[in-house]
């Protein structure tokens, strides 16, 4: 168990800076998810914590000690890779035991620890198999087992579920969450999938082009995004952005107005704050998504419960929302 602290952490590859200074304080036992689009520097950040990538400037602290110059094995971390990185010629048992063997752990203890982890991950009957004789989900579990047996103080996950099919992903997501709760190990989890981030995180870091745009609890980030990027990235379908002038916003700094789809109300034509035309609707069963075009051509989406009567495609309607649901963004995309 340990705390992790990143202090104005920067990383450059040659002359290009890809991480522009990230600060975060991670509490003992916390599950932190780093989320952001592909190429924003999530993996690089995680790999700096792991010690697989050198730190250009700033510090990484684990349990209060600066570990910038320590080898991965001396940082008391374990990592789960996206493609699992299992040793193909070793059995499941040997894959999990390899780190312990190198550390010179007594044989009996290795067997005991691997067995415990295997039981936890329901891998007991597969210990003799090679990785290629396992399904994707099982390989994923072996990769987790390899991390668990070492009893590290920090788990690092780099998109561990992105090679699985959708159904398995949901199932493994739950398992990872339960496992982390049970073991109470501080975890850093990288993903580009905002649903994964929302469901797993105690707190999440939303990364945008090498900068941590916002750090906070998932619901807090959802309800109160700090930047236009976060508002657009977190939530599906994404936040609607409307030109502030068109929406008649009084605030002179505001350039854009953001409203979440579930906060848009579709009204009869002539009422509400904006006129719009229904382009098409998607009935998803429990809810219906209505896609509308505004006077200036902007597309917005309204999410309505399926019990509400939907507007027919092609009709003119009015749009309304409550003042409290307005999110105003300035020229730089910051909240104002």
């Amino acid at each position: 168990m340990a705390t992790v602290k990143l202090d104005s952490l920067k990383k450059s590859f040659g002359k290009t800076e890809v991480i522009h200074g990230v600060d975060i304080d991670i509490k003992d036992g916390e599950f932190i998810v780093i989320v952001g689009p592909s190429g924003c520097g999530k993996s690089t950040l995680l790999r700096m914590v792991a010690g697989l990538e050198t730190v250009t400037s700033g510090t990484v602290q684990i349990d209060g000690a600066v570990v910038n110059d320590r080898e991965p094995m001396d940082r008391d971390i374990a990592m789960v890779f996206q493609n699992y990185a299992l040793y193909p010629h070793m059995s499941v048992f040997d894959n999990m035991a390899y780190g312990l063997k190198i550390a010179g752990t007594p044989k009996a203890e290795i067997a005991e620890r691997v067995d415990t982890a295997a039981k936890l991950l329901q891998l007991e009957s597969y210990l003799k198999r090679r990785p290629r004789e396992l399904s994707g989900g099982q390989r994923q579990r072996v990769a987790m087992g390899r991390a668990i047996v070492r009893k590290p103080s920090v788990f690092l996950f780099d998109e561990p579920l992105s090679n699985l099919d959708a159904k398995l992903r949901v199932q493994m997501r739950l398992e990872i969450k339960q496992l982390q709760r049970r073991l109470g190990v501080t975890s850093l989890y990288v993903t580009h999938d905002q649903v994964e981030a929302m469901t797993l995180a105690d707190r999440m870091i939303v990364m945008n082009a090498g900068v941590a745009d916002q750090i906070g609890a998932p619901l807090e980030v959802y309800a109160n995004p700090a930047t236009e990027f976060v508002a657009g990235f977190i939530g599906s379908p994404p936040t609607n952005f409307v030109n502030a002038d068109l929406a008649g916003i009084g605030n002179p700094d505001a350039v854009k107005l953001g409203v979440r789809p579930e906060h848009l109300n579709v009204m009869p034509s002539g009422s509400g704050r904006l006129a719009a035309k229904v382009m098409y609707t998607e009935a998803l069963g429990a809810e219906t998504l209505t896609h509308l075009e505004l006077a200036d051509g902007t597309m917005v989406t309204a999410r309505q419960s399926a019990t509400e009567a939907g507007a027919a495609e092609g009709t003119e309607v009015g749009l309304d929302w409550q003042d409290g649901d307005e999110m105003l963004f300035d020229r730089n995309g910051k909240r104002c």
Binding site: M73, M79, N83, Y87, I102
Partner: peptide, 21 residues
């Protein structure tokens, strides 16, 4: 895959141990 070398490094293998094992 590079990740294999990295996984071994996280497991604490020295370069020659990675080579041999």
């Amino acid at each position: 895959p590079d990740e294999l070398a990295e996984a071994a490094r996280v497991d604490g293998a020295s370069p020659m141990q990675f080579f041999r094992d």
